[in-house]
Structure formats: C-alpha cells, structure tokens
Amino acid sequence: MGAMAAACALALIFALALTRAAPAGPRATPAGQPVSQAAGTDAAEDCDAPEKQTLSPSDADGRTIEEIKNRKGEKRKLIVGVDQNSYRWGYRDPNGGESGTLEGFDIDLVHRIAEDILGDRDAVQFKAIPTDQRIPAIQAGRVDMVVRTMTINCDRIKDVAFSAPYFKTGQQVLAPKSAPIEGYDETLADQEICTATGSTAYAKLEADKKAGRLPESTGIGTTVPNQLDCLVRLQLGEVDAVVTDGALAASQAAQDPTVELKGEAFTTEYYGVAMRKDADDMVRRVNRILVDFREDADGWQASYTKWLSATLKGDPSRSEPPAPEYLREN
C-alpha cells in the first residue's frame, strides 16, 4: 500500500504540474467555447451516424502523404497530437526518467500508422495536446493528425475529418467509493461535477441540464484543460464526481483505488483519428491501416489485451467498434 500511495502522490504532483503548465486561454468558462468544439446530444439533429461519415480505404499516396514523405532528414516524421497523461492510453512510462517513453493503446496505433506511411514505426514526433486544443492544432497545421481518445460527433465533423471508429465507449460517472452517488441520475443533486473543456462530457451535461434530465442543483461549472486534472480535483475534494468516457474513467480508477465507476455508461461513442478536412488521401490511408489493425494478430486485440484488458474487465467485445461503414463521398 505504501508503494501505491507513493505512486498516486507522484501522479498527483505530475498532473498538477501539467495543469499549471497548460497554455493560457479559457478554462472554466464553457459558455465561451466555440460551438464547433462543444458536441452535445442536440447535434445529432444535424447529421446521421457521424462515425460512418468517412471515406473508403485506400493505399494510394496523395498530396498530404507526399508532403509528409518529402520532409527532409530529422523532420521526416509523422506529427501527431496525443495525450501524455491518460493512463494506458497515452502516458509516459513512470520508470523512464524525465524523457520517459510514451505508451498506451493510442500510442500503439500511432506507431502502426507511421510504419505504414513512412516505413518506420518510430518516425513520429509526438505533441502533447490538451483536450480543448485538439481541433485548433489540426486546423492550424501544428499536427498531421490527432490520436487522443477523440470522440467522433456531429459538431466535430464540421471542422475536421475523421477515420472510421477504432474504439467504442460511453460517458460514465467516476466518484469516490464512499460517495452516495449511484450513477448518472438524481443522486447527482447538489454534487459538483468536473469535465474537460471542449469535451463531449461537458456538452452532454449542459444539454441534459437545460432539458431537465439532470438535477437543477448539479454543478457543472468546473472544467479543466486535461481529463486527468479532474481526477486531481476529485482527490483534493474540490469536486464530488467526474464525468468522462468510461474507458478513460476506468483507467483513472486503476490509478486511484479510492474511486470507482458509478452506474453504467449512459451514451454510446466512438473514438476516431482526426485529420484536416481536406486530407482525403490521409483519411483513406488511415482507414486502410485500421482495417489491418483490427485483423492482424498483433493489432487491435493485442493492444487491448496489453493496455486495457485489466482496467476494462477483460471484455473486448464491449469496446470493439462495429464493422466500419464509409458513407462520405468527398
């Protein structure tokens, strides 16, 4: 238990340091978020099955891929926005020193993409991107893609292009084991909930509160740049619960034995690789890679078993996305 406490303390210190180092900008003012980044349930009226709005697979190189391949010397790398503090998704090996290796399910997928496009799984420049900066980083050309537990939804496909889904999850409540909270229900009355700025979790809470599906006394004003910051707030007693993707919540519960998932997932969501709207050749290529990633013995299942099986109770069928459909024509 001493080792566990020490590990949790180190995680807390690291997360607080990340929070302080986060770039300036709107933090706890969700009302100021661009509509395109606040993906709520109401957005479903604007499109049908956003996870299917992607292009068919192709091995062909196009303008986007050629530009990456033509980078010279040390710059000939795939530039990818990732997380570096989501346990078992994208995080630094705590035993790896100051420049510890990035590891996790998302990181495995990035290496697979780099190997296919550039012939070298390590030809990657990782950039740590806060939750609310994923879309701006793509639009500004700071990254070629984002692989960061990013939910495909109707608002986001207006701003970026997505691959086919590579993971299935849903929003869930994380709270202390001793808390009276039972799930996403009336037990959230008089409770303060933390979410990441620009996340689908916040948009769901906001939409449900406006529609009366969430108790009026539930507080949803605490938002943070990165999801792990919510776990820190919970540990410090500044909030009563966290709402995030169940896959991420399970990893956070694995980091802190005093918290647990409360109730079942109350949405169905899919993670996708996000790219520029005009990067059609990249979207098609990534979709081709995902087909192989799901079928190969050392692909999706192997990565799930290595990183997520323990935290998600070992049942991959609940997380594996459906067979992809490619309904986007251009």
Rank of each mutant, 00 (worst) to 15 (best):
M1H: 10
A3L: 13
M4P: 09
A7V: 13
C8W: 09
C8N: 11
L10R: 11
L10S: 12
A11P: 03
L12R: 11
P23C: 03
P23V: 04
G25W: 03
R27H: 11
P30E: 06
A31R: 15
A31C: 10
V35G: 14
A39Y: 12
T41G: 15
A43W: 01
D46S: 12
A49G: 05
S56L: 15
P57K: 02
D59W: 12
A60K: 12
R63W: 04
N70Q: 15
K77N: 15
L78V: 04
I79R: 15
V82D: 04
N85E: 11
Y87I: 03
W89Y: 13
W89R: 04
G90S: 06
R92L: 07
P94D: 00
G97K: 08
G100K: 12
T101H: 14
T101E: 10
L102H: 10
G104W: 04
D106Y: 02
I107A: 01
L109D: 01
V110H: 02
A114K: 00
I117Y: 05
D122F: 01
D122A: 00
F126M: 03
T131S: 10
A140N: 13
G141K: 08
D144L: 04
V147I: 09
M150K: 13
I152Q: 00
D155K: 14
Q172T: 08
A175M: 04
P176Q: 14
E182C: 10
Y184Q: 06
T187V: 10
D190L: 12
D190Y: 11
D190C: 12
T195A: 12
T195K: 02
A196F: 07
T197D: 11
T200P: 04
Y202M: 14
K204W: 14
A207S: 15
D208P: 07
K209V: 06
K209C: 06
G221V: 01
T223Q: 07
Q227V: 15
L228S: 15
C230R: 00
V232R: 14
L234Q: 00
Q235W: 07
V242E: 11
V243C: 03
V243P: 02
G246I: 00
K262N: 05
K262I: 09
T268R: 10
Y271T: 01
Y271A: 01
M275I: 04
R276G: 09
M282C: 05
V286W: 08
V286Y: 05
L290M: 06
L290C: 01
E295D: 13
D296A: 01
A297N: 10
Q301T: 07
A302W: 00
A302F: 01
L308K: 00
S309E: 05
T311F: 05
L312M: 13
K313L: 15
P316H: 00
E320K: 14
P321T: 02
P324V: 02
